[in-house]
Amino acid sequence: MDLELKDIPGQLVLALQPISDFEGNIVSVVHHRDKKTPRGMIPVQVTFEIDGAKVSDLIDKLKSGGIIVARVGEERLRERRAVILIGHIIHSDIRDTIDQIDATGYAEVMDLAMSMPGIDQRSSARLVINAAGKREMESAVELLRNIAREKDLLLIEPI
């Protein structure tokens, strides 16, 4: 998010506080004190993770504090995690497994690689899951754990 702040003390806090208030996780802040805009404002680039549903309320809040929101760039699904599944993956309906993850709205299966040595033998699959943030990834993997338990699949997670 690109913001423009007035050149008076205390403005940066005024800009960052609402992000925290909306439970955003600030990743980086770049403060360009030397590059004033034609309007005499100071540009600031803030990168943060936040629940997408809260973004418009956050923008309203920033505006009401006198901050100009110049640009909002969205990069969804920042977290990536690979997992392995072993078992009767096809018989236990891999499509349904993927659909359940995709249906969460905050996570999706980006890549699937399978290896099936033979009929009646257990297959192995590698799933790459993307999710909006760390918390979303945790819930997606928790969901996958439950699915694996239900379908009697062995789930191998990263350390």
Binding site: A82, I84, I86, G87, P117, R122, I156, P158, I159
Partner: peptide
């Protein structure tokens, strides 16, 4: 329950499988 195929799939992504 570990299969050689799962080790290969893991390896292609840069992982080893270990009992932790």
């Amino acid at each position: 329950g570990i299969t050689p195929e799962s080790l290969k799939l893991a390896s292609d992504e840069g992982y080893a499988i270990k009992l932790i």
